Simulated scan of single mutants.
Amino acid sequence: MNFKSILFALTTLVTLSLAIVLNPQITSPSADTKWRAGDTRTVTWDTENVTGGPIPEGMKGTIKLGYLDPKDGPNEHLNWDLGSGFDLNKGSFVVTLPSELETKRTYIIVLMGDSGNASPQFTITAAR
């Protein structure tokens, strides 16, 4: 094997490894979840069965709260940052929901690392 062949093989391997996208499935909240605005809750995700995984040590994540509006197509309305800079391979992060949220059944949590992964739609009720 000559130098050019080895260099090509190494470049191909590096490119393929960088193209792998990690996509951990969010396990909480689920479609049956009901939270209340202002509460502190734990968002969890699967770290064992990750498409593109395992999650490397030191990869950081971000959690956003949004909602879907049937009149607005696929727009996720990711209006609230709930946390960032946490280790994605830990599988959970405690968040505090904004207290001014309206009651909706179409809220979603989006977990971002090297891609975004949305939870099923779930309910948050307005604070009392």
Rank of each mutant, 00 (worst) to 15 (best):
K71I: 08
D69Y: 04
E102P: 05
S119L: 02
K104N: 13
T51A: 13
E100M: 09
T12L: 15
G61Q: 07
L7F: 12
K4E: 15
T33G: 04
F93E: 09
L88F: 08
T27I: 12
S92V: 01
N2P: 10
V21H: 02
T42K: 11
L22S: 04
K64F: 09
L16H: 04
V110D: 01
T62Q: 10
G53V: 12
S5I: 05
D87Y: 12
P54N: 05
T11N: 10
L13C: 14
K64M: 14
A37E: 00
T106P: 08
G85M: 11
A37Q: 02
V95S: 08
T47W: 00
T47K: 00
T47D: 01
L16N: 09
I20V: 15
T47P: 03
D46T: 10
T44A: 01
S92I: 03
K104I: 07
S84C: 05
N79E: 06
R105Q: 14
E48D: 12
N117C: 09
W80L: 04
N2E: 11
E76M: 14
L7D: 07
P120K: 06
T33D: 01
S28V: 14
A19K: 08
T44V: 05
P29G: 01
D46N: 15
E57C: 01
D39A: 12
V14P: 02
D46H: 01
Y67I: 06
W45I: 11
S119E: 03
N23P: 00
L97K: 11
L88A: 13
A127E: 03
G85E: 09
V50L: 02
I55L: 13
S30W: 02
I26Q: 03
G61R: 07
M59E: 13
N49M: 06
A127N: 07
F93P: 04
G61K: 01
L13A: 15
H77P: 05
S99I: 12
R36Y: 04
D46Q: 08
E100L: 11
L16D: 05
G38T: 03
L22V: 13
Q121A: 13
G116E: 05
A118R: 09
I26K: 03
E57N: 12
W35G: 04
I109A: 03
Y67R: 12
G73L: 06
G85S: 13
T42L: 07
T40N: 04
V21C: 11
S28G: 07
S115C: 08
D32N: 13
P54C: 06
G52H: 01
V50I: 07
R41W: 00
T62A: 10
D32T: 14
P24L: 01
K34Y: 00
T12K: 09
I109Y: 00
I6M: 13
I108F: 03
S5H: 10
